[in-house]
Simulated scan of single mutants.
Amino acid sequence: MPRHRSKADLPTKVCPVCNLPFTWRKKWEANWDEVKYCSERCRRRRG
């Protein structure tokens, strides 16, 4: 039984700043519903 999921099976979102899709990351496991931006750079440029 494989331990890892393929990247295609992970949920994705689209960043509202750069309009690029980004996938789920382990560090976002606890708050994936609140994650809006793909990176810290986009979060700072949100204005």
Results as ranks from 00 to 15, higher is better:
residue 3 R to F: 09
residue 46 R to V: 05
residue 23 T to W: 03
residue 41 R to N: 13
residue 11 P to R: 02
residue 3 R to Y: 11
residue 25 R to S: 05
residue 45 R to S: 15
residue 17 V to T: 12
residue 2 P to A: 11
residue 36 K to T: 15
residue 29 E to Q: 13
residue 12 T to I: 06
residue 46 R to T: 09
residue 16 P to H: 07
residue 17 V to M: 02
residue 33 D to P: 03
residue 7 K to E: 15
residue 35 V to T: 03
residue 9 D to S: 13
residue 29 E to S: 11
residue 42 C to A: 06
residue 35 V to C: 00
residue 15 C to D: 13
residue 35 V to L: 03
residue 47 G to Q: 15
residue 14 V to W: 00
residue 26 K to D: 08
residue 18 C to W: 04
residue 30 A to P: 06
residue 10 L to N: 07
residue 41 R to V: 14
residue 24 W to V: 02
residue 3 R to S: 14
residue 36 K to W: 00
residue 15 C to H: 01
residue 3 R to W: 09
residue 36 K to A: 12
residue 21 P to D: 08
residue 11 P to T: 01
residue 7 K to T: 11
residue 9 D to I: 00
residue 4 H to F: 12
residue 35 V to F: 00
residue 47 G to K: 15
residue 1 M to Y: 09
residue 42 C to T: 05
residue 8 A to I: 07
residue 16 P to E: 11
residue 12 T to N: 05
residue 45 R to Q: 15
residue 42 C to S: 09
residue 32 W to M: 03
residue 19 N to V: 01
residue 3 R to H: 14
residue 15 C to V: 02
residue 1 M to G: 13
residue 30 A to N: 12
residue 43 R to P: 00
residue 14 V to Q: 10
residue 11 P to A: 04
residue 8 A to W: 03
residue 5 R to A: 08
residue 34 E to S: 15
residue 27 K to L: 07
residue 29 E to V: 03
residue 32 W to H: 04
residue 10 L to F: 07
residue 22 F to R: 01
residue 10 L to I: 05
residue 45 R to G: 09
residue 4 H to D: 12
residue 18 C to E: 06
residue 42 C to Y: 05
residue 8 A to E: 14
residue 24 W to T: 02
residue 14 V to M: 08
residue 6 S to A: 09
residue 15 C to Y: 04
residue 20 L to Y: 00
residue 12 T to Q: 12
residue 8 A to K: 14
residue 37 Y to Q: 06
residue 25 R to I: 00
residue 21 P to I: 01
residue 1 M to E: 13
residue 30 A to L: 12
